[in-house]
Structures are given as structure tokens and as C-alpha cells.
Design a protein around this nucleic acid. Structure first.
Lengths: 204, 204
DNA sequence: GCTATATTTGACCATACGGTTAAACCAACA
DNA sequence: TGTTGGTTTAACCGTATGGTCAAATATAGC
């Protein structure tokens, strides 16, 4: 049918909005229906249950969250540019979807095991290994400090994502308005790579 | 009555366990009652409603989470030691209470406004300002790089807390067993201060 | 326009859940 | 031992919620 895609798409958008805001247990099927401007029974017509609808959304969110940025990470950029690229693009991505980090962190905690399949699809582990290898080569050349690469990768991710997950705390304690927080994260796109590179580069 | 404190304490412990695992919407009063090995009606006898019990728990968690460590931050330690102290003690604290970060990050997102009173009690803003002032003095002496202190503070917190919030993701993608993750975080107590100080100190 | 198929809807169902009640229980004390 | 007051409990209540169903409505092919 013609309308099918439209309705289905409306539902998916509404569901993403509600699930990312309220989480699985907090979300109400009625609320999703209202948001999509359809009858609650139609939800179950298109997606049989809350669980199935949720899985669809969760998969889509996780794919968006991991895919877009991580994919480009084993390009032929140098270490510096990869770090710059990652921070800048991740912050951009989350600025467009502010609810993603908390949503993922939270539901992750409930479901852990079944999520790992999704990670596998993105071949994260392989990309990380490539990056580690590239770094080691640079260490051998004397350009970067030797360090536990798992710590470095954790640092890059933490610095980029955490401020969004803890946004209200930061805004309050650093006394930032919404606009100021936006500016703060804009600055941060440059600040993080600078901060990291200051720490890991060896200046000859 | 004699038994009152015991029962009340049992409830609070059970409630903390369940709320930090499942969040407000995910937690069930029956589950808390079971965990405390009492009747569900007794819950309502001691704490009138789910909301009130939750607020009690949330306040207690937040106080523990903020107080213990942050309080000691405006001591007379030097910058280096304050950063070392903060990272080490925060990681210790969370290792003892692994559910705290996700719990706070999540509920925070639902409730923001009423939480700020609790932050005020801990005088976080003042302590941050003191730290900023101390840093500026050191910059003037030429010992540390000049930088936006709000970024630095965000970095310290992000690096310490985020790995716990995203633990399953990290464990999977860095291929760490539970024991290895523990070791990883043990190393991290030293790694973070080193990483940060490498970046901000000026070597003469 | 008629039939078959897909979609939408209001009404309904069963269960789960937070919360209440009244009776039972128990310790202290007169 | 009987009375009092705090505590515990089983049974119950009203509502919210995920899910179903059959009737109604729209759509497409003939």
C-alpha cells in the first residue's frame, strides 16, 4: 500500500522520540501513538509488541551512533587528524541527537548481551586494532609517547561523549545557560584534540 | 520501638539496590519489599509512597557521590595532587558502588530542577571556583598552560566516571573480562592524572 | 461499481502496579 | 492479666498499561 511507508515512518520517528526520552520502562505505547497521531492498535498492527518496536529503535539508534563516525576511522588519515575527526564528528552527531547517549548507556545496562551482535556488525574491534597498530608505528618513529592504547581510546570516547550524558550537572555547576552550553561544546571540538595531542605527542 | 531502625534500614538498603539497578520507572515496590524481606504494605507504612522513598534514596546516593570526594578538594594540596586525589578516590568510590553513575545520569535527566538544591548543599560551585583560582595562580607562575578551566574540569570528571557508565561497551570492544576491567580501572587511577598532567604542565 | 485486501479504529480484556484498609500481632506497662 | 500503641500482614481497590478483536473504512484491481 502507498501509505504504509508513511505511517510506519511516522511511528518509528515517534517511537524514537519517546523511547530516547523515557527509556523502555518509562515509555508508554499510548504516548507513542499520540506522538505519531495514530491509534494505539495501529502500533501493534505494524510492530507486534512494545519489545519488538523497542528493539527496532534501539538497533537503529545504535547503528547511527556507532556507524557514521566509526566507519571513517580506518581511513588513511594521520593519528592527529583521526582524533580531530572523531571528536568533531561525534560531537556533531550528538548535538543533532542529544538523547542518544543516555538512552544507550541506560538500556545497555539492562540488556547487555544481545547488543553485542550489533557491535560486531560495525566491526568496531577490528577498527580499534587498526588504529592501535597505526599508533604503535608512530611510537616506533618517536613521534608519540608509548602508552596503553586501551586507555587512550577510552579517553577519546570519554571526553567526547560524557559531557552530553552529564549535561544538566555540568550546566548547573559550571553555570552555563543552554546557549552557553552549546558554545562550550563547540569550543570542545577543538579543545579535546588539542588536550589529547598535547599529552601524547613528543615535541622534538 | 527497637525494631524500627532495623526494618527502616533494611528497606533503605533494598530500595537502593533496586532503584540503582532498575531506575525509578523500572523499580517495583513489590521487588523492594521482597529484597527487604518484608510485606509490601510495610513499605508504605515507613515511606508513604514510591516517590518519597525514591527521593530519599536519590538524595542519599547523590550525597555519597558528590560529598565524600568533592569535599576534600579545597584542601591545601597542590594542583597535581588534587587531580591525583580526585581521580583515585572517585574511581575507588564507584568501584564500591558501580550502579551509581548510570542511576544518577538517568534520573537526573528526568528530574533536573529539584536536584539542583542537593548540589547547592555541597557547595560544588564554590569549590570549583577555588580550584580555578588556584590554577590561575599557577598559570601566572608559568607552571601550567593557560586554558578554559571549565574544559579542564569537564575532562577530569569525564575521564574518571565515563568508563563506568559505558562499562559493557568498553569491555566488549576492548575485549576485557570482568577481572581485566577491574585491572584496567586500577591502572586508570594512575593513568588519568599522568595523562592530564602531561597535557597541562609546562616543562621548563 | 464490485470484490478482495490492507489499514484504521473504538471497545474491550487481563494483568500489573501503587496504594489502602482493617484485622492481627506483639511488646511494654499498669 | 488487660490495655495501649506501635508494627506487620493478607486481602482488597482503582487505575494504568500492553495487548486483542471485530467491525468499519479505505484502497486497488477488475
Amino acid at each position: 500500500m502507498e501509505n504504509e511507508l508513511v505511517t510506519e515512518e511516522k511511528i518509528l520517528q515517534a517511537a524514537m522520540k519517546v523511547f530516547t526520552r523515557k527509556g523502555y520502562t518509562g515509555a508508554r505505547m499510548q504516548e507513542i501513538a499520540d506522538e505519531a497521531e495514530i491509534n494505539k492498535a495501529s502500533l501493534h498492527y505494524y510492530f507486534r509488541s512494545k519489545q519488538l518496536l523497542f528493539e527496532r529503535i534501539f538497533q537503529s539508534v545504535l547503528t547511527k551512533f556507532l556507524g557514521e563516525v566509526v566507519t571513517k576511522l580506518d581511513s588513511d588519515l594521520c593519528i592527529d587528524d583521526k582524533i580531530r575527526f572523531f571528536c568533531e564528528n561525534y560531537i556533531n552527531l550528538i548535538q543533532k541527537n542529544p538523547g542518544f547517549p543516555n538512552f544507550i548507556l541506560n538500556e545497555l545496562h539492562q540488556n547487555p548481551q544481545y547488543i553485542f551482535e550489533l557491535f560486531n556488525k560495525q566491526q568496531i574491534q577490528q577498527r580499534i586494532k587498526n588504529f592501535m597498530f597505526q599508533y604503535k608505528e608512530e611510537v616506533a618513529k618517536g613521534n608519540y609517547r608509548e602508552m596503553d592504547m586501551r586507555q587512550l581510546i577510552t579517553n577519546i570516547i570519554s571526553l567526547s561523549i560524557f559531557p552530553f550524558a552529564a549535561r544538566p550537572i555540568l550546566q548547573f555547576n559550571l553555570d552555563l545557560s543552554n546557549d552557553e552550553f552549546y558554545e562550550f561544546m563547540e569550543d570542545r571540538k577543538k579543545h579535546i584534540p588539542e588536550f589529547i595531542l598535547n599529552s601524547i605527542k613528543i615535541n622534538k
